[in-house]
Nucleic acid binder design. Structure first.
Length: 529
DNA sequence: TGGCATCGCGCC
DNA sequence: AAAGGGCGCGATGCCA
C-alpha cells in the first residue's frame, strides 16, 4: 500500500491520499489534524509514503515522525528524465506536472528539493498533492516498463532521502573543544582580531625571507609564480607536487604554509563556529547530487572532512562510533559488472592479492594500475601497467573500454541498475572532447554502480536497525563509508548489521561470487584505526 | 560591492 | 606523444 502525502504549509494542514501500487487513487483526499497522525497511519498500514521531495520528510522528522519506506517523486523524476536521455532537464514536481499535461516545463526553482524552508510553501498555489499523485502514477508506469532494476534504484534513491534527512537531524558528534585544541597545536593560538594565526604568519615571513625580503603573499598563486620566476624557476603552477620538484629555500616553508592555511581556511575556527552547534555537525546532504548518483553536500564541506580534524569526531559518553568502509569497492564492482571474477577472488585485500599475482608484490603499483584503468589514465607509467591487467583480466578491461568507446561516440551509458549518464554536449566530436567524455563514461559505469551498491547498503542497514529496534543511529555517509553512533553495549550488534547489510546489498544488485566486504571498526574517535 | 572564473586542495 | 573520474569550498583576481 502507498499513501501520498503533502505535509502542507508549516502552520497548515497536511493532506494524504491512499494509492494502489500502480499509483491510482484508492480513496479520497483526507486532511490530517497534524503530522503526528502520519505516525498512526505508519503503524496501521506500514505504507510506502509518496512525497514530493526530501524536505517533506524533514517536516515529518521535525514532528517526531519516522517512516520505513518512501517514494520521493522529484528524486525518481530525476532518474526517469535521465533514463530518457535528458539528464539535467527540469525534474521538480512542477516540471513533471507540466510534462504530463503536455506543457513545456519551466526551469526548476532554485534548490529544487532542498533550500530554505518556506520557499515552496510560498510558491504558486497549486494542488501539490494532486501533482504528487499524478506524477507518481506516471513514474510507476515508467518504472514498470523499465524493469525491476530501475524499481530497485528508485526505492534505493528514495531510501537515501530518508537516511539523509535522519542523518542531518541526528548530527555527527563533534567535540568543539578537541577541534580547538587540534587547531591551536597546529596553528598557534586563535588570533583575536582575525588575520593569520602565529604559525601561518611565521611561515609567510619565512617565504618572504627566502625570496630575499620582498613580500610575497603565499595565498596568491600569481605572486608566488612571479617570485619563483625572479629566482630563476619558471613554474607552470604552484601546485604542491610541482613545487616539490623545485630546489629553492622558499619551497619548504611554502608547502608547510599551504597545508596549514588550507586547514585554517577550510576547517578552522570559523568553520567550527559556523557548523558545530551543541556538539553536533549537521551538514545538509544532497541525495543524487552528483551525476553518478553519489551524494553531494551543501555547507560545511561534509564530504571532505580532512584527516587532520577527524579526532574531533568523538562518540558521546557511553557510546561508540561504528565506522565501516567498503574495501576496494570500485574494483569489486568492476569485477561483478564485467563477470571477470578473477579480479576479486575473495574478501582479502584486492590490491595485495593482485600485486602478488601480477605486480611482483608491489601493492601500490597494483592499485595505480587498477585505478588508472577505471579513470582512463595512461600517463605516469600507468600505460605500461595496463598491459599486465589487460592480459590477466581481459573481460574487465573490455568492459571499461566499451564504456569509454560509447562515450567517445556520443552514446549514453548506464549503471547496473539503470542510472543514466548525461547526454553528450555539442562539440563532443572534437577529439580532445571525445576522449574526455570517454574517460567520463568509463568511470561512470563503475562509480555509479558503486554508488547504488552503497545506497542499497544504506537502505538495508537502516531497515535492519529499525526492525531490531536498535538504538544506533546512522550519522555519516561518504560514498563507500558509513558511520553509526551507537550505545557501547549495542556496538557489536551494530557492526554485525553492517556486515549483513553489505552482503545483502551485493546479492540484491548482482548474481555474482564477488564479495563486498566491509572493514568495520568500533572506536571512540573517528581518527582511531 | 557583488558576481564570476580560476586555482588549488581536501575527500572518495 | 599525451591523454586522471567525481565533488565543495575558500582565496584571489578580474569585471561590471
Amino acid at each position: 500500500m502507498r499513501i501520498a502525502l503533502d505535509p502542507g504549509p508549516r502552520d497548515g494542514p497536511a493532506r494524504v491520499q491512499l494509492l494502489a501500487d500502480d499509483g491510482a487513487p484508492a480513496g479520497p483526499v483526507e486532511v490530517l489534524a497534524d503530522l503526528a497522525a502520519v505516525a498512526a497511519l505508519e503503524r496501521e498500514h506500514a505504507p510506502r509514503w509518496v512525497f514530493a521531495r526530501p524536505r517533506a520528510y524533514r517536516r515529518l522528522l521535525e514532528a517526531g515522525v519516522e517512516v520505513a519506506r518512501a517514494h520521493d517523486v522529484e528524486l525518481v523524476e530525476g532518474l526517469v528524465v535521465a533514463a530518457a536521455g535528458r539528464y539535467g532537464q527540469p525534474h521538480g514536481l512542477a516540471a513533471a506536472v507540466a510534462r504530463l499535461e503536455g506543457r513545456e516545463p519551466e526551469p526548476d526553482p532554485p534548490d529544487a528539493g532542498d533550500g530554505p524552508p518556506g520557499l515552496f510553501e510560498a510558491g504558486p498555489a497549486g494542488d501539490e498533492l494532486a501533482g504528487v499523485v499524478a506524477v507518481h502514477a506516471a513514474q510507476q508506469r515508467a518504472l514498470a516498463a523499465a524493469g525491476p532494476a530501475m524499481r530497485l534504484l528508485a526505492a534505493a534513491e528514495s531510501a537515501g532521502a530518508l537516511v539523509a534527512e535522519e542523518m542531518t537531524a541526528h548530527g555527527l558528534p563533534w567535540r568543539a573543544d578537541v577541534h580547538d585544541r587540534l587547531l591551536t597545536d597546529l596553528l598557534g593560538p586563535r588570533p583575536v582580531l582575525g588575520g593569520r594565526p602565529p604559525k601561518l604568519a611565521a611561515l609567510a615571513e619565512a617565504v618572504t625571507a627566502a625570496f630575499g625580503g620582498r613580500p610575497v603573499n603565499p595565498d596568491s598563486p600569481a605572486e608566488v609564480l612571479r617570485a619563483f620566476a625572479r629566482a630563476g624557476h619558471e613554474l607552470e603552477t604552484t601546485r604542491s607536487w610541482e613545487l616539490r620538484r623545485v630546489d629553492h629555500p622558499a619551497v619548504e616553508p611554502l608547502l608547510a604554509y599551504k597545508e596549514l592555511a588550507r586547514l585554517h581556511a577550510a576547517h578552522g575556527w570559523s568553520w567550527l563556529r559556523s557548523w558545530v552547534r551543541e556538539g553536533r555537525f549537521r551538514p545538509e546532504y544532497v541525495v543524487g547530487g552528483v551525476v553518478s548518483g553519489r551524494w553531494a553536500s551543501r555547507g560545511g564541506g561534509a564530504l571532505q572532512i580532512p584527516r587532520a580534524v577527524r579526532a574531533a569526531v568523538r562518540a558521546d559518553p557511553g557510546r561508540r562510533l561504528v565506522v565501516a568502509d567498503a574495501a576496494q569497492l570500485e574494483p569489486r564492482v568492476l569485477a561483478a559488472l564485467s563477470g571477470d571474477h578473477a579480479l576479486a577472488p575473495g574478501e582479502e585485500d584486492l590490491y595485495t592479492a593482485l600485486a602478488a599475482r601480477e605486480f611482483g608484490g608491489d601493492r601500490a603499483k597494483a592499485k595505480l594500475a587498477l585505478l588508472s584503468a577505471m579513470y582512463g589514465q595512461t600517463s605516469g607509467g600507468a600505460g605500461a601497467l595496463l598491459a599486465g591487467l589487460r592480459r590477466r583480466f581481459p573481460a574487465a578491461l573490455a568492459y571499461l573500454e566499451d564504456a569509454a568507446r560509447a562515450g567517445e561516440e556520443g552514446r549514453l551509458v548506464r549503471s547496473h541498475l539503470g542510472r543514466t549518464c548525461p547526454p553528450a554536449r555539442p562539440g563532443h566530436e572534437q577529439p580532445a572532447a571525445a576522449r574526455a567524455r570517454g574517460r567520463f563514461t568509463r568511470n561512470f559505469v563503475v562509480q555509479a554502480t558503486a554508488a547504488e551498491w552503497a545506497l542499497v547498503l544504506l537502505a538495508e542497514l537502516r531497515q535492519r536497525l529499525r526492525a531490531a529496534g536498535s538504538p544506533a543511529r546512522l550519522v555519516f555517509f561518504q560514498h563507500d563509508e558509513v558511520m553509526l553512533h551507537s550505545p557501547a553495549e549495542a556496538a557489536a550488534a551494530t557492526a554485525e548489521a553492517v556486515h549483513d547489510a553489505a552482503a545483502t546489498a551485493g546479492r540484491r544488485l548482482f548474481d555474482t561470487p564477488v564479495r563486498f566486504p566491509m572493514q568495520v571498526r568500533i572506536v571512540d574517535g573517528y581518527d582511531e584505526r
